[in-house]
């Protein structure tokens, strides 16, 4: 029973060994001369906040919202592309309608200015 899980255990052990090995080699062999600029926190896009618990920039959320929609489009397109030869014209038309509806949403976003950063 439990013997079936042995490969997973071996995998975990090896992963642990390799990971710790690499990190320790990096620490030991790499050059290290820190200064204040290197140690200070840096975040792309906006100034680091004073309070580290309150990181919130609305613009990232807008990008996230838009991303999710088009992310899923791909999730539907891939399986569709695999079987396109079998489902024929009906499948093609169905996907065209699906993309058309998505495009309507995209035009709406664009016109409303949701794609602009500022």
């Amino acid at each position: 029973m439990l013997i079936e899980y042995l490969p997973i255990l071996i995998f975990l052990v090896f992963a642990l060994i390799f990971a710790s090995l690499m990190i320790s080699v990096g620490f030991a062999a790499g050059p290290s001369n820190p200064d204040s600029e290197k140690n200070s926190p840096y975040e792309c896009g906006f100034d680091p906040f004073e309070d580290s618990r309150m990181k919130f920039d609305v613009r990232y959320y807008l990008v996230a919202i838009l991303f999710i929609i088009f992310d899923l489009e791909i999730a539907f397109l891939f399986p569709w592309a695999v079987v396109i030869h079998e489902i024929g014209l009906t499948g093609l038309l169905a996907m065209a309608i699906f993309l058309l509806i998505l495009t309507v949403g995209f035009i709406y976003e664009w016109k409303k200015g949701a794609l602009e950063w500022d």
């Binding site: 996230a64 999710i68 929609i69 899923l72």
Partner: peptide
């Protein structure tokens, strides 16, 4: 899909 829309 629905969950993605929901989180959006």
């Amino acid at each position: 899909t629905v969950v993605a829309a929901e989180s959006a």
